[in-house]
Structure formats: structure tokens, C-alpha cells
Design a protein around this nucleic acid. Structure first.
Lengths: 334, 334
DNA sequence: CGCCAGGTGGAAAGCGCTTTCGAAACAGTC
DNA sequence: GACTGTTTCGAAAGCGCTTTCCACCTGGCG
């Protein structure tokens, strides 16, 4: 391991000068010495030890990214975007996965804090559990007090910079579009009661129906993943499916599960019932029937979240993200 | 920021003792002092600065993971497994994405090296470009000389611990299964010529056909992703599709693209032609028609790769991973 | 010629931790 | 009671780097 001291000695200069020429500084060093140092560094193949730099500078070049699971395409897309932004800023990314366990989320933030990452991006949805939110906030406050910066994508609950997707409005717009196709009676596969992203989408959808003077949808809870969608659809198929003409799954992956469940039960989509999702996951765009959904620019959201975290605003900024209804073959006019 | 020195002073002991009781050491410290230190640490809310520890100890608690893209479910699954293993070992994970750019892969390894990560897991496929391989190997050697550990999943080309999926054998087994269904003439959507994972699968498939005395398949190259599969299928549909009864896409995501292309052209699968993939991506198990494929235990492979990297073997170990043919509805008996 | 501003270089004090090494204290032995 | 052997603790020297502070030199000015 060749250190800066080796380079300095080899170039016949002091440690200070070597540091100044090789690793940025606001002080200039004369052309002659500068060249000698650069040559020495090249000859020896010097590379700075970033951990030592981090210690000396008191700030690192890495950012933390907290997601629920990388195998969930929603988070994968967000992560992809965040990594792109990190790249742009010359930062490296440390990832922690929580698997939707709030305890783990807090633990992960804590790990990232002691790792002295420069910023943390929380990609997961918030829950309605106030105790958890309070503890997470406390953890984040501790991190920010130590100079860390935080942004999250989802609900503005943490008092930090937030990229806020239009879950409510998007779902409402979807409801109106579906009503425009003639649908009157809906079921919502609504995910877990406590998950705010799911709750917001359900609420937006329901509110829009009410505005239109349509009956309230049937709401079925379950997990926020493929199997949750499957299970909820099975429940629906078991009783009451014939009373609805359209099923709204609050995310695409759940819709995927629902489609599978309906297919397994011989229910034709969209012939017997229409199905819509939310997110517009890229990998799922080739489904048959093509899924009606609400598009969110996931990668861009990840990017913006990181940018937000890095920008130093005094006040927590909220960046709204518009969602766009995409009607496809899984919903038909009735 | 409360430091170890604060704790030591508060407890009225030396820095050394405080360090010994709070952050593991093979030296014991008396019960009385130990308690005082623990109390002090708790009262002040001390938490070690892991970057400082890393510097002092000369080894960090973080591992590096190099993938092509997180949005590719194949890598997402590998990453998921690696993260699970990291968790098990109490390590945090730094991720770098290369987007299939060999230059970037080298750059990422370099970044991880200067970050002084404890081990690096290379999840991407190797290429047949020897210059690149040589440069990557050089970069890795440099890292290992500095005490780093490396494992990769894919081909054993780097002289490091390797988790080697049975690409060749899996594809061969698939060929035999498909032949068993009565298929005689095949096309292979083979991905890029230089990508070894793709090449191995193509080769295994082709060799098995030859063993069976069947004609060589038509091989179409393209990208290793959904759009590559789509494009290759379009090309095939343009000419020669009627001469084959079965299309083998060398990964599931390509198969997904191929299915879309065929559907767009009114070709029925499996009615007009059968389609098979490779990997058995979880998110794609709900496709219609359900995709015949070759299952690889991706998450487990990621886990094993990290375990391998962490275990200190003198000789580079090669861990073969079996692949299993899964026949589903996208291939039919002819 | 003396003086001061401005620009360059180096010595050295950190950053927060680990770990070696020596001192001190205690027990056990002849 | 002097001598080892064994613990247990603390002083201090790092780990590789940044940055402050001071010394020095040059040039321009009065």
C-alpha cells in the first residue's frame, strides 16, 4: 500500500504539499513541485485512502440508500435512479434493505449513521404507526445533528426533504378514467392498512368515486406484494366478484398477483372483470393483458431524492411528482 | 458527536480500556472498570465511528457488490442474496452498477478498492474480450494484494473464488427436454457474441442438439435484455420463423421480449411456436403463457458468492450450481 | 533601503480509533 | 521475603490523511 507519505518522500516535498496537489485544496502549489508530486504519484501508483480522507475531512463520499427489497421492481427502479444521481455527484452508494420491517429500517439508518455517510435516502413508504415514525425521526435527527443530510420518497412525515409522488391524485385520476369507461362498482386490493402509500392510493381512489356519485368500492386488505394481490383476488373471487366490474390493485406487483389468481379461477380479464394497477413497472409492461396503471417516473424520483438530500436547503423541501394514468388492455369499456 | 475519549474521561479510565470494553478485543478488563465504561457509554450515547475503526484496524466492515443493473431482476435477485449473507456476517454493502460497460466495471472495482471494502463480489457475466479480462484481473490483483478478497458469480476466468452456474449443462438439459417434446428445429436468441453467460448457454444448447443428432439451431445475436429479445424475435419472425418449432432465448428477460414481439406479430405461443427462457426470474413466473425455463437459485448464488469471498481459502474455489429445467406452458408437445 | 502584502512551502496538530509496550499490582512459590 | 508469573491498566505511537499556523521569499511601494 503506497501512502501519501511515500509519494511526498519520493518527490522530496512535504506531506502537506503532496496532499495539496493530489487531493484538491484551495491552496495552490508551484508548478515545479506540483509536477514532481504528480510524477511521483504516478510512478508509485498512489491512490488515496478514502477512509482516511473521510476521517480527516470529517465527511465521506458515500451516501446511504434504504429500500425494502431490491427484488421489488419498484425499489429497484428507485435505487437505479438514486445510483445514477450518486454517480453524477461522484459518490458511492451503500444500500440497506429492510424487508418492510420498521425495526430494521431504524437499524439500517443507524448503521448508515455510524458509517458516516454523507446523506441518506429513504426509499420506502412510511407507515401510520406513530411510535415507529417517532423513533425513526429520532434516529434521523440524531444523524442530521451530526451533519448528515436526509431525503425520502413517499410521505412527508419525517420533516425532511421529500419527493412526494401523487399517490392520491393519481389514484383519483385513475378512478375517473375507469368511470369514464363505464365502470360503476369497484373493488380495491388495498394492501396493508398501515402502509401510507397503499392507504393514500386507496383513499384517492375512493374519494374520486364519491365525487362522481359512485358507490364506495369494496376494500380488501392484504400484503403489498404479488402474493398479497393474489390472496386478495382469491378472496374477492370467492365472494362478490360478480358485483364489481373493475378491480384496482394499489400497485402493479399486486395487480400481477391478482391477474394470476383470476386466471387460475377461470375469470377472464378484461372480459369478466377489468384490472388496474399503479406504478407502471417496466418489467411488467409486457403482461397480457397489458396492465392499465398509473405511471410514476421511478428512476427520476430516486434521482431527485438524492439531489434533494445533497442540496442544502434550510427548510425541508417537498417535491411533488405527477402521476399519469395509462389505459391499456386490462381495463375495457363496459 | 461523542467520542471514545469522552466516554473514557467520563468513566475515569484510559482511552485504551474504554476501547477494550466497548469495541471487542482479546484483552479482558476488570469487572469494575468494565461496568463504569459501559455505564458512561450508555449515558453519553456513545457510538463508535466505524470509519475511524476501519482506519485504525486496517480493515472495514463493508463489502462491495458489482452488478450490471439493479433493474435487471437477475441481478436484483443475486444482490438480494448477497445482502442477506452480508447481513448474516454483520457487514454493510456498497453497490456499484456497470450497465454492462466493462470500463465501468473496472472503474467500480477501483472505487471499491480505495474504499477499502473487505471483499468484492462480482455478479456480472464475464466477456470473451481478453484485454478487458486482463485489465480487470490486474485491478483485482491489486485489490487482493492489498488484502482484499474477491468472489464472482459466472465464469471462472479471474482466478478468484467463483460460483459457477451450470449454464452449459442447464441449456443442454433444456435442449434434451425440448427434443423430448418432439421439437426438431430450433432458433436460439443468443445475446451478444462476447458475453460468456450467453455464449455458454448457446453452446450447451447447440451441443446437446448435436448429440441428439438434430440439426444445428439458427442463432440470432442481440442484446442480453428485453429489447434484445424483442429485436431478435422480430428478425426471426421476418424470415425463417416457420422453419423452427421452438425458440430458446438465453435468458428470461429476453424471452419476455420475444414473447412480446411474437404476440405483436400475431404469432401464437405455444400454438405456432414454443418459447423457452433461462433463469426462472420470480417476477416473470406469472407470464401467460407460463415460461418454460431453466431455474437457477439466484439468491442462493449471491449468498454463496459472498460467503466464498469471506472464507479464506488458499486456492480459488469453484462452486458449481446446478440448474433445473422447468417445463411450462410456453413450450408444447409437437 | 525598509516595510508590508501576497503567495508558497513545511512542521505539526489533529480526525477517532486500536494496539503495543511498559508499569504496576497481585498471587503463588521456594 | 525475594523471585517469578500473571493480570490489568494506561501512555503513547500509530493508521493515512487534512489543515492550521508559521516561516520564508518575492515584489512593489513609499
Amino acid at each position: 500500500m503506497v501512502t501519501l507519505e511515500d509519494v511526498a518522500r519520493h518527490a522530496g516535498v512535504s506531506l502537506a504539499t503532496a496532499s495539496r496537489v493530489l487531493n484538491g485544496s484551495n491552496r495552490r502549489v508551484g508548478a515545479a513541485l506540483r509536477q514532481r508530486v504528480e510524477l511521483a504519484a504516478a510512478e508509485l501508483g498512489y491512490e488515496p485512502d478514502v477512509t482516511a480522507q473521510a476521517l480527516a475531512r470529517g465527511s465521506s463520499n458515500v451516501i446511504g440508500l434504504v429500500v425494502h427489497a431490491l427484488t421489488d421492481p419498484y425499489f429497484a427502479a428507485l435505487a437505479e435512479g438514486a445510483m445514477r444521481a450518486a454517480d453524477r455527484h461522484g459518490l458511492t452508494v451503500m444500500v440497506g434493505t429492510t424487508h418492510r420491517d420498521p425495526e430494521r429500517e431504524i437499524a439500517v439508518v443507524s448503521t448508515l449513521r455510524v458509517q458516516r455517510v454523507r446523506a441518506i435516502v429513504l426509499a420506502g413508504s412510511r407507515t401510520s404507526d406513530e411510535t415507529i415514525t417517532k423513533r425513526l425521526t429520532a434516529e434521523l435527527t440524531r444523524y442530521r445533528d451530526a451533519g448528515g443530510r436526509v431525503a425520502c420518497v413517499g410521505q412527508d412525515l419525517l420533516g425532511v426533504d421529500t419527493v412526494a409522488p401523487a399517490n392520491r391524485e393519481g389514484a383519483a385520476a385513475l378512478a375517473r378514467s375507469l368511470a369514464g369507461l363505464g365502470h360503476r362498482r369497484f373493488a380495491v386490493l388495498a394492501g396493508p392498512p398501515g402502509l401510507l402509500t397503499a392507504a393514500d392510493r386507496t383513499a384517492g381512489f375512493t374519494a374520486a368515486l364519491a365525487d362522481l356519485g359512485l358507490p364506495a368500492p369494496r376494500v380488501l386488505h392484504g400484503d403489498f406484494d404479488r402474493d398479497g394481490g393474489y390472496a386478495a383476488a382469491v378472496e374477492l373471487a370467492g365472494s362478490g366478484l360478480d358485483e364489481v366490474s373493475c378491480v384496482f390493485a394499489v400497485n402493479d406487483v399486486m395487480a400481477l398477483g391478482a391477474l394470476a389468481a383470476l386466471r387460475d379461477r377461470g375469470v377472464d380479464v378484461p372480459g369478466d372483470v377489468s384490472v388496474a394497477g399503479f406504478d407502471d413497472i417496466a418489467t411488467l409492461r409486457d403482461l397480457v393483458p397489458a396492465l392499465t396503471t398509473v405511471r410514476l417516473p421511478l428512476a427520476e424520483m430516486g434521482e431527485r431524492a438524492l439531489d434533494l438530500a445533497l442540496s442544502d436547503t434550510s427548510e425541508p423541501a417537498i417535491e411533488p411528482v405527477a402521476a399519469e394514468v395509462v389505459l391499456r388492455a386490462s381495463t375495457r369499456r363496459v
